[in-house]
């Protein structure tokens, strides 16, 4: 999303042609009518964008989570037992996943439509492949 909004330029260009345009509102009204309701963010998400410092903070969190993950590799932690290790690593993995998707990929700030598309892909993948592995008696 550029700071110099292309929409603003276009409006200016069209105003010169004496045509009354309200693109953002029109788009928002339109999508509100049909349940995709994706738009709202398009026009005003410049304000909500995180600062560089926030990105760095997220990266630090990710680094720490990775460090904890790697730490489990060393013997002392193995006393926890395999089940606990699986659980811990899965939680850490999901956390990292969510942080990158929400902040670096802007899902937290962007149109909800993107989140839905991505979640549908993830949910379908999890669903079908976990069932497939289950059918193979993978977990026992």
């Amino acid at each position: 999303m550029s700071q110099i909004s292309p929409v603003a330029e276009d409006s200016a260009a069209l105003a010169a042609e004496e045509i009354d345009v309200k693109p953002a509102e029109a788009a928002a009204a339109d999508s509100a009518a049909d349940g995709t309701s994706a738009a709202a963010s398009a026009a005003d998400d410049h304000d909500k964008h995180p600062s560089d410092w926030q990105y760095v903070k997220i990266a630090i969190i990710l680094g720490v989570l990775t460090a904890v993950e790697v730490f489990t590799y060393f013997e002392s932690v193995h006393r926890l037992g395999d089940a606990a290790l699986f659980a811990l690593l899965t939680v850490l993995m999901v956390l990292k996943f969510v942080y990158v998707a929400a902040w670096f990929m802007h899902l937290k700030f962007d149109s909800v439509l993107f989140k839905r598309i991505f979640m549908t892909g993830i949910a379908l993948a999890l669903g079908v492949y976990l069932i497939m592995l289950t059918a193979f008696s993978f977990w026992t």
Partner: peptide, 11 residues
């Protein structure tokens, strides 16, 4: 809507 580079969803 299309003419100003806008789209139905605004995306």
């Amino acid at each position: 809507v299309q003419e100003v580079g806008g789209t139905t969803t605004g995306i």
